[in-house]
């Protein structure tokens, strides 16, 4: 995932300068990662290849188009940004489809009817909301590390390289501590609720 010679930040910078080849490379790099991740986030009936791909591609394209205002320095930061964009995009689509039940096929895919996403089925929407809230309370570096590891399945070595940590072991310790802290925050937020 991490290219030895061309960092995500380099590519993003080139994209910002209008370099379309860099944009293509960025798309090629992140599409499979985001696609795999998104699979668990879409409602069951929208998780056909087409439904996921549409939204994922749209998210990536839009995110890359709007990097004028935000150039993440790390791959983890870019992933966090993509993740947030995707979730917003999905919420928008869901809202739109609830207003217009007859729409394009994607909206129908994402329509309010039918079962939820695998993640909603597994833990419930309320728990997800609590999780998001707690996640937002972590430091950016911890948040990125946790997302890279737990949600995007990156290896410790890759995360260490991206976050500038000395070794995979250092990344492992940092993530493990962040996960424990996150659990504490979830527990506390849950109690408040």
């Amino acid at each position: 995932m991490l290219h030895p010679t061309e960092s995500t930040a380099d590519l993003l910078m080139l994209c910002r300068e209008g370099n379309k080849a860099a944009r293509d490379r960025l798309m090629r790099r992140f599409l499979p990662i985001l696609r795999r991740w998104a699979h668990g986030r879409l409602p069951h009936h929208a998780r056909s290849g087409a439904g996921t791909d549409d939204l994922v591609q749209l998210t990536l394209l839009k995110s890359i188009q709007h990097i004028d205002t935000f150039v993440p320095e790390r791959e983890g930061a870019f992933l966090a940004y993509l993740r947030a964009s995707f979730l917003n995009q999905m919420r928008d689509e869901l809202r739109r489809s609830s207003r217009r039940p007859q729409g394009n096929p994607l909206e129908e895919h994402l329509g309010p009817a039918g079962p939820g996403s695998p993640l909603q089925d597994a833990v419930g929407q309320e728990a997800l909301d609590v999780y998001e809230e707690a996640l937002a309370q972590l430091t950016p570096l911890d948040r990125e590390a946790v997302l890279m590891r737990l949600e995007f399945g990156y290896q410790y070595g890759e995360i260490a390289a991206d976050l500038g940590l000395s070794s995979a072991g250092a990344a492992r310790m940092r993530i493990s501590r962040a996960v424990a802290r996150l659990a504490k925050l979830i527990d506390a937020n849950d109690l408040k609720a």
Binding site: G40, L119, L150, G153, V179, L182, A183
Partner: peptide, 23 residues
């Protein structure tokens, strides 16, 4: 307890989000 339940939640999220990862 509350914190272990939170950890179970994180484990579930990890398993669904990154099914190819070690989880």
């Amino acid at each position: 307890d509350g914190r272990r339940s939170a950890l179970k939640l994180l484990d579930s999220i990890a398993r669904v989000s990154a099914p190819r990862n070690p989880a």
